[in-house]
Design a protein around this nucleic acid. Structure first.
Lengths: 139, 139
DNA sequence: GTAACTGCAAAATATTTGCATCCTT
DNA sequence: AAGGATGCAAATATTTTGCAGTTAC
């Protein structure tokens, strides 16, 4: 497990540091997406605010994680699939935000649908966020 | 000034004030969406920051405008169609953000597609934001 | 006249930058 | 040893709150 984290960092030409290992570990151990605040307050560790900002930014630039925009203006971050690299994301999956537990998930198996745009518009990326009740809360 | 603007405010039980008329006028005179900053700096008028925050919040609560989440964490606001009311939006249209001019539009004619979710998930609202090049920039 | 709205000041949050120090390679 | 990463302090930026004065109805 620790090896996996180090490998991800090395593969992206990032030096392996404590903060990066721990923050990346949080993402790997958790299926849902994390907001900046979630990471800062995460149990056990206390991260410097600035380090979290910079680490997240670095991870996004390297394509290790991607952002999920939500209606409440709180940006969440989630792991990218393996085929993401260098800012070029291939995350054609949708995102699900649970109104009950508040968690945000990547539904990797649900592909973004084709959207028929009016004449003249060209699409380069489609972002879909579904709000509702998740599997776990719906029991 | 504009009767239409006053009517919208009255219909929503809001008192007709100068700020509200002007800010609502901005939305009516402009097809794209506006961010908080756009309104504050809008030519001609200088609005108090706080008034803009409170006016936008009021308009959203009343269902006069709705928010559009974007990947860059800048919330945009756009007029709702007539059938929106009291926080309950029927805006089943998609949003388009142009990478060239930066404008965000509501594509009212494009309906959000049905998304087939995994078993157990229940959807209450679907938000679709398409990024690309808009009609105007694509000429 | 009353309730609601505005705008100023200031508090509370959030984000960015500079820099000296420490760690990874 | 050299370059990059960290963490503290502080500068900016953003959003919220309190309150007194003003305005709409």
């Amino acid at each position: 497990m620790n090896e996996a984290i180090k490998n991800i960092l090395k593969k992206n030409n990032l030096s392996v540091t404590g903060s990066r290992e721990k923050i990346l570990g949080l993402f790997l151990n958790q299926k849902g997406a994390l907001a900046h605040g979630d990471i800062e307050k995460k149990a056990g560790e206390r991260f410097d605010r600035v380090t979290v900002y910079r680490t997240l930014q670095t991870f996004v630039e390297k394509g290790i994680i991607h952002t999920i925009p939500t209606a409440d203006n709180s940006i969440r971050y989630a792991l990218c699939k393996d085929d993401c690299s260098g800012g070029h994301h291939h995350d054609h999956h949708i995102h699900f935000q649970c109104a009950s537990c508040g968690n945000t998930y990547c539904l990797d198996d649900v592909v973004t649908p084709d959207i028929k745009l009016p004449r003249g518009y060209v699409s380069s990326h489609i972002e879909v966020v579904v709000e509702g009740i998740c599997k776990t809360c719906n029991q």
